[in-house]
Amino acid sequence: MAFDAQLAMADHIAKITLIGSLDASSAPRFKEVIEEAAVQSPTKLVLLMDSLDFLASAGLRVLIFAKQKMGAGVDIYVVGSQGPVLATLEMSGFHHSVYIQETYVEA
């Protein structure tokens, strides 16, 4: 149930791979990576969630933080999210504000 977040920047697109369990104990690490990405002024934020198996509200709050920190003009893509993690995003209304995709395709 460990967590890891890895950032890769390319062509002003911030791609973050999220692995494991994202809750209040791991959200500070995710927030750190978002801040690391934000200082590089990305035009898009792509979150690769294939291997994220648990998402609590603390993780959702970091997504809100990301949008508010990077600005409304920076689109957020949630890629590869499935099952209950995807259901949590949809139940919380996040699908209205982010692009949800199975594999990353620029919208």
Binding site: R61, F65, K67, H96, V98
Partner: peptide, 21 residues
């Protein structure tokens, strides 16, 4: 509130919502 864009959302209240769901 759940339908608001992320940039306009309040950061709290989601936890207990997820509990009850």
């Amino acid at each position: 509130e759940l339908n608001l864009p992320l940039e306009e959302r309040d950061i709290g209240g989601l936890g207990i919502f997820l509990v009850l769901k």
